[in-house]
């Protein structure tokens, strides 16, 4: 048995090495780690309270530009709020929405995909119909309608994203389950006497897990974008919560005079989403042997 354990350990090590050997995973993971740290330590590293208005310093430029001040490293907005502090606090909402929405969409979508793809027949057709029905709506339109119905707040935004984006998991994972389902080892497990549940958990689920992990990472980016969109419209969260989308909406009025106020949240969103996408791409290549071969 020790040989078996050694084999498994070796496989684990190889797996870890493969993950770290992917530059995209390193860069993407690094970005997300930094954003997460900023969000966690916001109280300590942000120079100001994100809502604190300094009416003497309205629209002051970044510290390196003419008239900039060290107290406001990235300048202030039209209400005299510190742009850097707002960006740091904005990461909190972005990450919470990103992680929780992706988690929820993953659980609902993957479960339905596993059930539908594995059992086929009526269950699959019913789930497929609901997915088609859902996908007949442009996704943000559906989120908007949901938010109008249930009201605003971070939890409501998460609910709206989950209820819309589970279909993405369901559709993609189902296709993969169907491929796995046709492999003879699934039939072999059934012929040995494995129950459906056990076959699903020990034979099918491990085969689609890499895909689910990858989708999770990409879904985080999508959720962050949806949150920014909703708060840009002004629907997502109450005004006393700072988000990147809100910062964008506030900065629109001053676009001619104070570009930096807009550029900071723009960059924050792009870099964070890029981190999610890089991580997702890297995981996909590292975890999927077919893609690894062709370097997709």
């Amino acid at each position: 048995m020790s040989a078996l354990a050694a084999g498994a350990a070796e496989r684990g090590l190889l797996g870890a090495g493969r993950l770290l050997g992917q530059p995209r995973i390193l860069v993407g993971g690094g970005i997300l780690l930094l954003v997460a740290l900023a969000a966690l330590l916001a109280t300590w590293i942000a120079p100001h309270d994100p809502l604190e208005q300094d009416l003497l310093h309205m629209l002051s430029p970044p510290m390196w530009a003419d008239g900039g001040e060290a107290a406001f490293p990235l300048g202030t907005d039209s209400l005299g709020r510190c742009v850097l502090s707002r960006a740091i606090y904005g990461a909190r909402v972005a990450l919470i929405v990103g992680i929780m929405s992706a988690l929820g969409a993953m659980l609902i979508g993957s479960t339905l995909a596993l059930l539908g793809g594995y059992f086929g027949g009526r269950i699959d057709r019913a789930i497929g119909y609901v997915v088609d029905l859902w996908m007949s709506f442009p996704p943000v339109v559906l989120s908007l309608i949901l938010l109008v119905g249930v009201g605003t707040g971070v939890d409501k935004v998460i609910l709206a994203v989950v209820l819309v984006d589970w279909t993405r998991f369901c559709r993609v994972v189902r296709a993969d389950v169907l491929v796995t389902r046709r492999r003879d080892y699934v039939l072999a497990a059934r012929l040995i006497g494995f129950s459906h549940l056990r076959t699903l958990l020990t034979e099918v689920l491990p085969a689609v897990t890499p895909l689910i992990i990858t989708l999770f990472s990409i879904e985080m980016g999508v959720a962050i974008i949806v949150e920014a969109t909703l708060s840009f419209i002004g629907l997502s969260v109450p005004p006393d919560v700072t988000t990147w989308g809100q910062m964008l909406a506030d900065a629109r009025g001053d676009i001619q005079s104070a570009l930096w106020v807009m550029l900071v949240p723009v960059c924050a969103i792009i870099v964070t989403v890029l981190g999610c996408n890089l991580l997702g791409d890297g995981l996909r290549v590292a975890l999927d042997p077919r893609l690894r071969q062709r370097g997709e």
Partner: peptide
């Protein structure tokens, strides 16, 4: 492509306004 995929359309809108409008 990965970088471009990380930029949603409304950010493109703002960026394009900054470049070609401002």
């Amino acid at each position: 492509v990965t970088l471009l995929q990380s930029i949603p359309s409304f950010l493109w809108a703002l960026l394009l306004i900054i470049v070609f409008g401002v």
